[in-house]
Design a protein around this nucleic acid. Structure first.
Lengths: 143, 143
DNA sequence: GTAGTTGCAAATCATTTGCAGTAAT
DNA sequence: ATTACTGCAAATGATTTGCAACTAC
């Protein structure tokens, strides 16, 4: 079985890039953190155990993770780029609370089927998709 | 009948803000340009006829247009914020070509109904939604 | 040993803001 | 008159890059 770490090592090898201590630390940190962290947030988390790790290295490595297909870059309302692990092949979507910022992931095969059909109707070869629903979560709705 | 220009004047008046020559020029320019322009692109267009208009004024005015409900801010792959006019109440979605950058808008009441239902299932009060399908447009698909 | 990598600081890019002069109310 | 607005230049915040020292191969 191939773990995500193997997948990354493999990608690095195939591209003449090196497996370094920092890259492994960053990948580990990314995988064991909540989803949708920004590079800066991940950097701050990693700092705790690895005070010597560099800001730029985190940015560079997150780009590598995105290139290797392990992570996806996302932009929600704010200015920062956020990363989420790529879950096998199931697409998922997001509900985002305008008030508390909570991000809820969900999947829906009906939606997925409909989007596929839509892309096909426009002769588009689909690579990826983004669906975000913004509103107020149950907790933030005043009565 | 209320035009978009009236809507903007109205918004300004109600908020103790002033109707200025620059704001009218920027609104006109925005309305007569292709959709999905960034503030910078709009600024460059406006410059041609109004060499004295300021960069910051365009940014500030685009924010006003967004606040007044005339325009919406959007983020596609790149770093810039893009603006599109708000078309009455029909929601629309985007197909974006990874190769040539073309942006195609479409509407789909089936998708819309499904999204409403999904939000309701999570007890979310929906405010707005984003759906983007990325891929290759017919022209960019190599055979 | 060679080529890629790191960490720092400086650079960049989009956007925002302070301020003195100007214009709308 | 008063208060908001403009345009410039300088500031900011996120991200990128140049470079000399370092580390994986």
């Amino acid at each position: 079985m191939s773990t995500v770490k193997d997948q990354f090592r493999d990608y690095l090898g195939k591209h003449g890039l090196k497996v370094t201590r920092q890259r492994e630390i960053i990948l580990d940190g990314f995988l064991s953190s909540p989803s949708h962290l920004s590079a800066e947030e991940l950097y701050l988390r990693l700092r705790k155990d690895n005070p010597n790790i560099g800001y730029a290295t985190v940015y560079r490595t997150m780009k590598l993770l995105a290139d290797s297909g392990i992570a996806s870059e996302r932009h929600f309302g704010d200015r920062q780029t956020r990363y989420e692990p790529n879950t096998s092949e199931e697409h998922h979507y997001h509900l985002i609370c305008n008030s508390c910022g909570k991000i809820i992931e969900f999947e829906d095969s009906n939606i997925e089927a409909l989007l596929m059909k839509t892309a096909a109707a426009h002769d588009f070869t689909l690579s990826h998709q983004r669906l975000e629903l913004y509103g107020l979560c149950p907790d933030c709705q005043t009565i």
